[in-house]
Design a protein around this nucleic acid. Sequence first.
DNA 1: CCGTATCCCGGCGGATACTG
DNA 2: CAGTATCCGCCGGGATACGG
Lengths: 118, 118
Amino acid sequence: MGNRLNGFGACSAEVKKACPVEMTLHIISGKWKGIIIDILSHKSARFNELKRLIPGITQRMLTLQLRELEADCVVKRKVENTVPKKVEYSLTELGEKLYPIISSMRIWGNEYMKINKC
Amino acid sequence: MGNRLNGFGACSAEVKKACPVEMTLHIISGKWKGIIIDILSHKSARFNELKRLIPGITQRMLTLQLRELEADCVVKRKVENTVPKKVEYSLTELGEKLYPIISSMRIWGNEYMKINKC
DNA sequence: CCGTATCCCGGCGGATACTG
DNA sequence: CAGTATCCGCCGGGATACGG
């Protein structure tokens, strides 16, 4: 999971990403991050719940992507120490503010797919 | 540059990107695409002009990213066959509609950088 | 001026097996 | 249930040199 102490708070984004656009892109462009944020923007969810809702993702990748989103202050993780334990994932306040972006990307993507030819 | 005839028009995005969000993310998340779109949304520009405006990019990468954006119907390329030749890059109509997204990503990125700690 | 052609490397992400 | 641990292949992207 790389170095969590890199001069940019506890977050994974490197210092050299000085451009806010690049920064945002970097944070949301993991392979499964879009759909994870999308799901969590509707409701918080547990690990296996996310796994069920995201067809094709492996446990490993789900963990990795969630850890990165967590390090980037987009997702928060709440552990309930029961047996078996429950882990609840949800968006942070900052993460929720990503929704308009995801939303406009959906709109653009739909239009793109409709046109489909240049 | 890969297969341009992949069942999705002449565009580079694969068929399996059925999700419009993933699609959009895929189209704009090349390393230099954000800044290229950003620049071209203000004014069209020639190849070397872009190269000057984007510190650190190589000719090879500039070409590659422009070609992909072109294949994805975001950028258009106009060749003037003078000697030496001039090539003018600009956004397509579809490409211009990306601007609000880039713009909101900049806003979010700025806020992210301001907070910086979770 | 506007590109290709090569070569090469790191790291993202897949498959699979194991654990508190 | 919610994760780690390994191993490994692919490809995005850098450096450099050459071409119309």
